Amino acid sequence: MLLFSQMITDYWKSQFLNGDIIYSDKDFTVTINPDLNEDSRIMVLETSDGRVMAVLTPEMAEKLDLSQRQELSELVFRQKLNEAGVTLHGADYLFYFSEAEKNVLLQENQEGTWRPLTEQDDAVFSEFESSASEQDLDDAYVELDHWAVFGSFEQNRLVCAASMYPWEEDAQIADLGVLTLSSFRGKGHARKVVRSICKYAFEQGYEPQYRCQLDNEASTFLAKAAGLTLFGKWDVISPDCTVGETE
């Protein structure tokens, strides 16, 4: 049985294997796809089994002097990126529920101090935001008007919130953000809220997606504590990089 759902594996294959595969071995694959948008004109995915896939536009392939006749490796590819002046944004970890953990979650009886949030919670959510730092708010990207929002309370005060929004129009994947006020961390609020909102997403036909930067140890710990499994590391071209931009 697949560790992850067919939806997840098919989605990432479609991102990296659609187009002209110019190089492939057991460790590394490079695909040229003319349909990539400018923000993702280069993407790299390293799955948890150590395999690396890269996809790029024909224009970027020309900038990197890539052709079907050459031997490639991840190291050579990254050297070509460097020589061409291409910078990547910085990888995110991608976490999903395995099929086994999904089944456990769906059978879980969830009761406690957490619940869905609606526009009626505007006042308590505003107070929550005012108690968080700007950096935490930017990193978490938790918004009351997202597709789904859940919160956890202590003495009627919102102390932890998570929200989700559809990742892409043609993929049933919901991207997750979560934030706990600093003085209420370490009490299990985030784990419970993450599991609650993820169960809701599954029940609506979506796969929950949890992303965090590689150096965010607290977020990585939370993902695992909430029952998610590392799928891989995903990187895209930096928004500040001008190499290969269309006029």
Results as ranks from 00 to 15, higher is better:
8 I>L: 10
207 E>Y: 06
112 G>K: 05
23 Y>G: 06
23 Y>P: 04
206 Y>L: 08
146 H>E: 07
208 P>N: 05
210 Y>S: 10
119 E>G: 04
15 Q>R: 14
24 S>H: 14
188 G>K: 00
178 V>D: 04
55 V>M: 04
99 E>V: 11
9 T>L: 14
59 E>C: 03
233 K>R: 15
221 F>D: 06
88 L>M: 15
189 H>G: 00
212 C>L: 12
1 M>K: 05
237 I>V: 13
30 V>E: 03
209 Q>H: 11
186 G>F: 09
157 R>C: 05
241 C>G: 08
217 E>G: 06
136 D>W: 04
239 P>Q: 06
81 L>W: 04
10 D>V: 01
217 E>S: 10
64 L>H: 01
76 V>F: 10
38 E>V: 06
127 E>S: 09
126 S>E: 15
8 I>A: 14
122 D>H: 13
187 K>C: 01
192 K>F: 00
107 Q>P: 00
56 L>Y: 01
181 L>I: 11
109 N>L: 14
172 Q>L: 06
242 T>I: 12
75 L>S: 07
244 G>N: 07
172 Q>N: 06
45 L>H: 06
173 I>T: 04
228 L>V: 02
199 K>Y: 09
171 A>D: 01
82 N>D: 14
180 T>V: 03
10 D>A: 14
52 V>G: 05
194 V>H: 03
39 D>H: 08
133 S>A: 07
132 A>Q: 01
125 F>C: 08
171 A>L: 00
143 E>C: 08
150 F>N: 00
109 N>M: 12
94 L>N: 13
155 Q>C: 02
3 L>V: 10
100 A>N: 10
15 Q>W: 07
167 W>G: 05
48 S>N: 12
96 Y>M: 09
163 S>Y: 04
2 L>R: 12
102 K>A: 12
35 D>L: 13
79 Q>S: 06
232 G>I: 07
222 L>V: 01
204 Q>P: 02
